[in-house]
Computed example of a mutant assay.
Amino acid sequence: MRVPFIKMHGLGNDFVVLDARAQELPDLGQALVRNLADRFTGIGCDQLILLQPSETADFRMRIYNHDGGEVGACGNATRAVALLHGSEARIETAGGALLASPTDDGASVDMGPPHFDWDAIPLAYPMDTLSMPVGWEMLENPGAVNVGNPHVVLFVDDTDAVPLDRIGPEIENDPLFPERVNVNVATIVSPSHIRLRVWERGAGLTRACGTGACATAVIAMRRRLVDREVTVTLPGGDLQIGWSEGENIRMTGPASESFRGSFEWDDYA
Rank of each mutant, 00 (worst) to 15 (best):
Q30S: 14
G237V: 02
L164D: 06
D160V: 03
G96C: 09
V109M: 09
E200Q: 07
D46Y: 11
D128S: 05
S190Q: 06
A22F: 14
A203D: 00
R79F: 08
G10N: 01
D27T: 15
N146M: 01
F59S: 06
R201V: 05
N65A: 03
A22M: 10
F259K: 07
R180D: 03
M221D: 00
D14M: 07
L139H: 06
R34K: 15
A215P: 03
V16T: 08
A20L: 05
F40L: 13
I188K: 03
V33N: 03
I63T: 02
S192T: 13
R90E: 15
L196M: 04
L154H: 11
Y64Q: 03
E257A: 10
G96V: 03
P26L: 04
T233Y: 04
G148D: 06
A73S: 14
V17P: 09
E247A: 13
V81Y: 04
E257R: 14
L83M: 15
T233V: 12
L50N: 02
L176C: 07
G106N: 09
L25W: 12
M8L: 05
T78M: 14
P235Q: 01
V71G: 01
R223L: 13
M127H: 08
G112K: 06
R62N: 12
A161Q: 11
P133Q: 06
P26I: 08
A144W: 02
P163T: 10
G69S: 15
L225W: 10
P178H: 10
P169Q: 08
D38P: 04
M251D: 02
G75W: 00
I6M: 11
T41Q: 12
A255I: 06
G29L: 11
G202K: 02
G75L: 02
L99F: 13
Y268H: 13
E24P: 13
L25P: 07
A220K: 00
L164P: 01
A37I: 08
R62S: 12
T206Y: 00
G106Q: 06
W199A: 01
G72H: 04
A89D: 13
G68W: 08
R166I: 15
L51F: 07
F177G: 00
N35G: 05
I249H: 07
I6L: 15
P175M: 13
C209S: 04
D19I: 00
I241L: 04
L98I: 14
N182L: 05
L32T: 05
A31T: 15
R62L: 12
L205Y: 08
D158R: 04
R90W: 13
N184C: 13
D117I: 05
S244E: 15
E140F: 10
S108Y: 07
N149Q: 09
E264V: 12
F15A: 01
A20V: 03
E70N: 05
